[in-house]
Design a protein around this nucleic acid. Structure first.
Length: 434
RNA sequence: GGAGAGGUCGCAUAGAGGUCUAGUGCGGCGGUUUGCUAAACCGCUGAAGGGGUUACCCCCUUCCGAGAGUUCGAAUCUCUCCCUCUCCGCCA
């Protein structure tokens, strides 16, 4: 979230940001409520001040009953007034907080304006779309041929957008995660496995809530709806890692914190009916290694890490020998909290296009304010940290470009060199009984 | 799931209706001393919001796990919730 003082001082910048991000929010109403809250709070502070004075008078009165009773009577008046005003303030503050949580972050000046993902702008292209001297198969056909996938039975168990990985797909997935973790560990990232179940504040802090709540699975206890646990399934380890440091004051010497968070990820994919229904591109459950950075409160630091995280992800993609491009995501396709976002999209031959496999964002202190992650800088000043995150590798989605780009005429799959050592030296995936 | 104990300033601990403007110790910061280090001694020591001065000083309010209640007044009493620990049961 943005600092209230900033919104007060720069309402036009905030309104413009919301407009560019296609977010509907009434900043003037927010500011009016803010003024109201300040006035009400001042009123209460004055009452409390008098109350504190009276408390001292009552003590000072000692055995002087008349004085004492007079002060107590006055105190009762004030208590009554407070009892009336305090709930008013509380409800105003709650409403203000709720509005504030919906104010989007300001997109960077370098972010192109646009309405949705069709207006994202390519900034870099690496490799060239794979050319085949035979008719290539799509990943579903390949995986069926190689006995790596069972969608029908996955759906039987858990409904649409579910799947079962089999045999070499499982080994391949594990190898991919190991390669990814090793790559990041060499760069000083600490691997984490984090809770896939998280409390509400983590999602609010992350800015997945309140907008985007419909994409998240909530846990309910059967027959105990009254005492439902405040737990949700995370859509990314980012949610858990953000929550990990809530309400902490770190030391600047500890920063930056660099994590590679491995977790299962769950997404409802509400509103995507009929979209990407074939195969394993868009599924309710997947596994992801997420890069996560907590750094000092400096735009330059954020930009530096944003580029570094992109480079790290590219290194993984390049190790997998995949053609890809990088797009800078336009304002309309940017999340509420994001200042700027790059997506890496890998070439998918069966669709004859690039598809998103990685997403690299920075937030300035937008998330840090929401979950209250601060640090003491070199001068001893307490400041909010900056947070960033980027996919390092998400599976099974990455299997799509991996298998499709490396397929060979006989339906086997060439395993990229960097992966081979993680698969016991295996160089190709071939049908099980051949 | 059952029984018990507990959550106080970075850490440790005191505090049991008004003397709490939350004490003390450790740590940290600054100083004295010193060839250097250590010790000793002295001083300082959190967060949020608002206001005054305008510089980084002062004032006010809030914060003792969270919320509600009792009271003129709550760290302290009551209730609900959250969390941690110990023991038992169950369990990969």
């Amino acid at each position: 979230m943005l600092e209230l003082a900033f919104i007060r001082a720069n309402p036009e910048i905030v309104k413009d940001a919301a407009k560019r991000k296609r977010v509907d929010i009434d900043i003037d109403a927010l500011l009016a409520l803010d003024t109201d809250v300040l006035e009400t709070r001042r009123e209460i502070e004055n009452l409390r001040y008098r109350q504190n004075q009276l408390s001292k008078e009552i003590q000072a009165a000692g055995k002087d009953q008349a004085l004492r009773e007079k002060a107590i009577a006055d105190g009762k008046d004030i208590a009554a007034k407070l009892k009336e005003t305090e709930p008013t303030l509380k409800s105003k503050e709650d409403r203000l907080r709720d509005l504030l949580l919906r104010v989007p972050n300001i997109p960077d000046a370098t972010v192109p304006d646009g309405k949705d993902d069709t207006e994202n702008v390519e900034v870099k292209r690496v490799g060239t779309p794979t050319v085949f001297d035979f008719t290539p198969k799509d990943h579903v056909a390949l995986m069926q041929h190689l006995d790596m996938l069972d969608v029908e039975r996955g759906v039987k168990v858990a409904g649409s957008r579910s799947y079962v990985l089999k045999n070499d797909a499982v080994r391949l997935e594990l190898a991919l995660f190991q390669l990814t973790l090793d790559t990041l560990m060499k760069k000083g990232f600490s691997p984490l496995t984090v809770p896939a179940l998280a409390r509400e504040f983590c999602f609010i802090g992350n800015s997945q809530f309140p907008r985007g709540r419909e994409q998240v699975y909530k846990l309910a206890q059967e027959g105990d709806e009254e005492n439902e646990p405040d737990l949700f399934l995370v859509g990314t380890a980012e949610v858990s890692i953000t929550g990990m440091f809530s309400n902490e004051i770190l030391d600047y010497k500890e920063l930056p914190l660099k994590f590679a968070g491995l977790s299962p990820c769950f997404r409802k994919e509400a509103g995507t009916y009929g979209k990407d229904t074939r195969g394993i591109l868009r599924v309710h459950q997947f596994t992801k290694v997420e890069q996560y950075i907590i750094c000092e409160n400096s735009h330059e630091e954020s930009v530096k890490w944003h580029e570094t995280l992109l480079a790290n992800a590219e290194e993984v993609v390049q190790a997998l020998e995949l053609p890809y491009h990088v797009v800078v995501v336009c304002t309309g396709d940017l999340g509420d909290g994001q200042v700027k976002k790059y997506d890496i999209e890998c070439w998918v031959p069966s669709e004859n296009t690039y598809r998103e496999t990685h997403s690299d964002s920075y937030f300035h202190d937008y998330q840090a304010r929401r979950v209250n992650i601060r640090y003491r800088d070199a001068e001893g000043k307490v400041r909010f940290v900056h947070t960033l995150n980027n996919t390092a590798l998400a599976s099974p989605r990455i299997l799509i470009p991996l298998l499709e780009n490396h397929q060979q005429a006989d339906g086997s799959i060439r395993i990229p060199k960097a992966l081979q050592s993680y698969l016991g030296g295996q160089t190709t995936i071939v049908p099980r009984n051949s």
